[in-house]
Every structure is written in structure tokens, then in C-alpha cells.
Design a protein around this nucleic acid. Sequence first.
DNA 1: ACATTTGCCTAAAGGTCTTAGGTAAATACA
DNA 2: TGTATTTACCTAAGACCTTTAGGCAAATGT
Lengths: 189, 189
Amino acid sequence: MTRAGLTAQRLTQAGAELADEVGFDQVTVSALARRFDVRVASLYSHVRNSQDLRTRIALLALEELADRAAEALAGRSGKDALTALADVYRDYAHEHPGRYAAAQLRLDPQTAAASAGVRHAQMTRALLRGYDLPEPDQTHAVRLLGSVFHGYVSLEMGGGFSHSAPDTQETWSRTLDALDALLRNWPPR
Amino acid sequence: MTRAGLTAQRLTQAGAELADEVGFDQVTVSALARRFDVRVASLYSHVRNSQDLRTRIALLALEELADRAAEALAGRSGKDALTALADVYRDYAHEHPGRYAAAQLRLDPQTAAASAGVRHAQMTRALLRGYDLPEPDQTHAVRLLGSVFHGYVSLEMGGGFSHSAPDTQETWSRTLDALDALLRNWPPR
DNA sequence: ACATTTGCCTAAAGGTCTTAGGTAAATACA
DNA sequence: TGTATTTACCTAAGACCTTTAGGCAAATGT
């Protein structure tokens, strides 16, 4: 009876794939066990519980996203950088809907602070250097960009923009134009 | 043995309250049965299944939100209207986190088309009359506003803006300033 | 070759969802 | 007011998911 070679890492990876296939909320310890052709209880040596598994998938997604973002931002600035970063989020969500949903998982402050989430904020800040806003406004802008990226992708994926006329690609591109214009022309207090 | 007086309506209402207390994803047929001090199976005469229950709660939340929005928009225009509508979403999410999460539930096209969701889009369009954008851009703007409102609220509630310096109220107000400026000065193609 | 570790197993208990079929309370009707 | 019908809630039961406890055999170290 040869062993399956389970690992927290392999489970997390497979869990991420499963999430993309059936949705993050359908990722279950049982389904994962089936995928490895192994008894359910066996997973509990590698992963504390269901919540732990989900958290690991979320952290994986945050890392992957941050890596993509870092690569996309390298050597770009201004609107170029803005578009590149925005597309990273949108494309990732389209390619990996389950992982993207996982990245939205609410983490406890401890875990969040140690996650790649902080890199995301740093990169958005880096992007804003091209627009040179005074300090308090920079934080506001970081939050605004985060809101638009996340909100847009989340509504688009949720079907919120379906059945209406102009296609979403066009809106996306106009939205980025608008954001660029806004950042270049940031309204003072 | 007197009866409990179950109804799809009462179950939905209680489900919404439960959602606000313990989170939308913790709303379970069992928990609801406990709350009415009734056997679980009894609920299935009033609600088709768990998914049906969730959908009803989502529709309730969408209605409540649309009603609030309609009232807030009455007699306002321009930035006044923008702020009022934005605050409706944000306040509702703070007061009723579970219901707000429910309103995000993905509905099948049929149900979505018959829901109060369409009123939301109409109201956002009405708001934009004060800024008079040409038609294709109006749709883009509707989507942008939806993205910002939803994205901001969702990140704020998810703790995404926690532990950073300027308080979120300040960012919110500056975000609305920025959106107003953007709409008044919408970048052409 | 033997001892230890550890990976996966069986067993079992508790929770949720859902269907099928029964009983008693409410309501309608004579 | 007594009887018939409807309907609200119940018990029973099967299927699936989670989690813990304890066992055996495969891998690993000496």
C-alpha cells in the first residue's frame, strides 16, 4: 500500500485548483480527500481543520497576486503602471475565480499582517509615486484604487454588469482613463 | 401544543436578523429552526431549501436598500445626491452587515431581473442626470459608481482599511469629493 | 536488522440538509 | 355545533461534512 504523499503545500495547491473549478465555498476537506483518493481523516495530520485549509488557500492566492503585480509594475510608471496593476487583478480573477474569492477571505489581524496583503498596499503606494500626491491624500488614493479594482472585478464576476449594452472591456478601459485623469487632477481639500 | 406561526416571510425576516448577528454564511436552516423552537424539517413547508432561504434574504436586503436609496435621492441632485446615495449603501452595510452580504449573493438571471437590483441601476442613472454625460459614458459611470460603492464598503467591512492612519470616514468623504470632481470633469474618449 | 517516526487507516460522534409520511390543530362547512 | 378538510408541525431516516482518538504499516535512521 503505497502512500499518497500528502503535504500541507500539496493540499493547499490542490485546494486552490479545486476552488477554481467548483468555487471557493465548495472547497471542503472531503472533496480534497476524494481528489487524493485518501480517507478524510488523513488530511487532518497536515491541516488543522477546514478553516486552516481555507486560510492557506487565501494566503497562496495573495502571494500569487502580489508576485504578478510586482512583475507587472517593474519598469512602468504613470498610467502605464496603473493599467498594468489593474489588469493583474482583473485577469487573475478571470483566470482563477476561486483563488480570487479566497483572497477576499477575512483573515485575523495576526495572519493578515504576515500575509502578502501588505505587499499589495505597498505596490499601490509605489504606483502613486508617479502622480505625486501629498501624504494624507496618498492613503486616500490607495484606498480608492483598491475599492475600484476590487469592486469592479467583484461586480463583473458576480454578473452585475451582464445583460447591459457596452461590453465590460470598454467600461474597464474607460474606468482606468477616468482614474488616471482623477489622479493627475486630484481635487484639493 | 400551540403552533409557531411560521411563514416564508417571517422566516426570511428572522433569517435576515440572524445574518446580521452571526454572518450571512452562518445562516442555516437548523439555526433558524432553533430560533423558532421548532424542528428543522418544519421549515421545509415554507421554504424550498437552504438556497431558497438565502435567496429570499438577498431579495429582502435588495428591497430595503432600494427603498432607502429612493428616499435618500428624493429632492436631491448633483453632489448632494451622490453623497446621499453613497451613504445609503455604506450605512446599510454598517447597520446590517449580514443583509449587506446577502445582497451580494449571485442570483440567477431570472431572479435578478425580477429583483430590486434593477431599481438600483435606475437610481444611479437618475443621479447621473445631474452631471449630464453622453449616453455610452453614462453606463460606464454607472458601473464605476457601483464599483466604488461596493468595493469601498466591502474592503472597509472586511478590515482592509483597519490599522492604517487616516480614519475611514475621512477617506470616504474625500472619495466622494473625487468622484464628484471626476463626474463633473469626465475625460472624453 | 531493528527501533522510531510518521503517514494513512478505521471507528465513531456530532452537525447540517433534505425527503417521506404521520398526527393534531386550525379552518370550513353543514 | 359537530364533522370534514386543510395545513402546520412532527418523527424517522438517509446522505454528506467535520473532527477526534487510537491503530497498523511504511518509511527512515542507526
